[in-house]
Write a protein that binds this DNA or RNA. Structure first.
Lengths: 345, 345
DNA sequence: TTGTATGCGTTATCAT
DNA sequence: ATGATAACGCATACAA
């Protein structure tokens, strides 16, 4: 039983079938020129008859646009990115754009490769949660052929729109909450210092300590790279300190998970032995114990905002040369059990 | 401060700069014909000098291939799909393919639209976790222009490769485990019956009951659509039964989450009041309570397998006409606390 | 080894 | 309102 390979009918086939010229078919399809009712009907019928489908590649070559955007994220497995992607997709598709998704796995080198590829593919625009600044990214925005919107991670001195959140304030509030709950020795599982999120959350932590008059202690900050495994290792280090912290803040969801795993394996109870709070909310946070105290980001809004800004730049020739905008959204602290002061100590 | 819009240099620009012909540049770039060391060096230099980047659109029009595959999933927010996507991406990219990601949100209508778009974009192949059979999908595989691999959800009578798991056996084992733990009234939060996964898991549930000589009771099966919210509602119905089940099996991760939320809000303890098991594993299942008993799918393997099969079909002209293959992987039952028989009753 | 010429399937500009 | 024709940027068969 062999399969038939039908060749794809093209516009000339339609023209032939409808007994009109190629140009007329094109005009009918794109409504780029008036076509009489009669011939339009003939063309429609011919299209269905021969099974014609528009060839987006040929169209793109001619028009110079692809109706395609590139979406570059650091970790497609992370719920934060996942819901942002979903929102972006939704808006993009509603406006006729497809999205080519790329994942750097937090590796700037991989990101470079993907960015090159996306440029080759002639995407009309680009949304990037960068894994770290690279020449490719910089030249992409400087060439200015396709507008770029940064999300989550901002890059200073890069002339591109960005949608981020107020990391310093959010972290300061969360750590402040831990302090208000009676903790003085507070550990931090930090993120990459090469990323704005990593730096800003670190800064928020220090600010909270400073405001409470607590001396900073470098032994209390474990470094991780926003991954579950390195969060786990960093947590283990903190937990094996002779004078171990009574509370720990994790700088993103994954390292928070790693922290909880470490706690569980060490047989430590949360919040009784160690209180916990972390960045990024979980859908299941309410239904499982300990119920985690989290900093919830407006993830969906980030995606919608970014895609909306990108659409503006792509559609308006004029909007292209407007100065870059930095949109900073606010996060929200969800206080739950994992940071609750122990009833009796 | 206005941005410069540099126009994209093309191959003729390189040819001019290197003082060779267009064809030679092409030959040098694609290594499709021998080019002398000297001129190759000149061309390389010229490429860097003018900043030439290959135009994948023009190349695609000429060659008839795009090095692009379409990936159609039902829910990009679901960790199951997310890790499959990640694996697919990884393999695809290693072989020079980009992936256009589409999300149907479990809506067959949306899926149709996306499939049309993907066909227009001339993808070389397609991996689909379908939201339900549609004419578009069928005609896509029947036209046979681009090979299609189904994942997770199989469609009977569709002549396309598929990678799925043994849902009947997996569910039978999980529900069997619940029975072995002493439960006789076991609720089911089922999935869409329009999908093979929904049907097969339902079948596995019935088989487990039958094998244990337990009478099937339709009041004990709640219907959901693989979403967290409808899982939640279905769970509420089961829990408010006068003679409520002592155990419940949820047919996927999201409805399992909904179930746990319902349990939590009803103030019921798991496993003491209601034991729980569900399809799909969670990364955090070990570290939070109740530790969920789950059916872990080889998610990554599904993705790798699917992409590998797709590559074969795309590369070998010969492989195109081979009969469709159905690969059925096995799942693994992780017994944890949520299904543990209560120590004292 | 290199160059010339043609076509991929569209859109768009011009006549008619 | 419709038709002939020239690009779009590249790959390739063929000639030199």
């Amino acid at each position: 039983m062999s399969k038939r390979f039908e060749k794809r009918p093209k516009m000339t086939d339609v023209a032939k079938a409808a007994k009109v010229s190629l140009a007329t078919v094109s005009a009918a399809i794109n409504q780029s020129a008036p076509v009489s009712e009669k011939t339009r009907a003939r063309i429609d019928k011919a299209i269905r008859r021969v099974g014609y489908k528009t060839n987006a590649i040929a169209r793109s070559l001619k028009t110079g646009t692809t109706s395609t955007i590139g979406l570059m994220v650091a970790d497609i497995t992370n719920p934060f990115f996942t819901t942002a992607i979903h929102a972006i997709q939704e808006v993009a598709h509603r406006h006729g754009y497809s999205v080519i998704l790329c994942c750097s796995d937090e590796d700037p080198e991989k990101e470079r490769t993907h960015l090159r590829l996306l440029a080759d593919r002639m995407v009309d625009g680009l949304i990037v949660a960068t894994a770290g600044e690279t020449p490719e990214l910089r030249s992409l925005v400087e060439r200015g052929r396709a507008p770029v919107v940064l999300i989550d991670r901002h890059i200073d001195g890069l002339d591109a729109d960005a949608v981020v959140i107020d990391n310093v304030a959010a972290t300061r509030d969360a750590v402040g909450h831990l302090i208000a709950s009676g903790h003085r020795r507070i550990g931090l599982i930090a993120g990459r210092r090469t990323l704005s999120t990593g730096r800003e959350r670190y800064e928020g932590y220090r600010r909270a300590l400073r405001e409470a008059g607590i001396a900073f202690e470098s032994a209390l900050v474990g470094s991780a790279h926003f991954g579950a495994d390195d969060g786990y290792h960093a947590a283990n280090k903190l937990l094996s300190l002779k004078d171990r912290p009574t509370a720990i803040f994790a700088c993103n969801n994954l390292s928070g998970l790693g922290l909880m795993r470490a706690l569980h394996e060490a047989g430590l109870r949360c919040p009784d032995d160690v209180a916990v709070a972390c960045f990024d909310d979980f859908e299941w946070a309410e239904a499982f114990h300990p119920r985690l105290t989290t900093v919830a980001q407006p993830t969906q809004a980030i995606g919608v905002q970014a895609m909306t800004m990108l659409l503006e730049r792509m559609r308006d020739e004029a909007a292209r040369s407007l100065p870059a905008r930095l949109v900073r959204l606010k996060a929200h602290l969800n206080v739950r059990d994992s940071s609750r002061p122990p009833a009796r100590r």
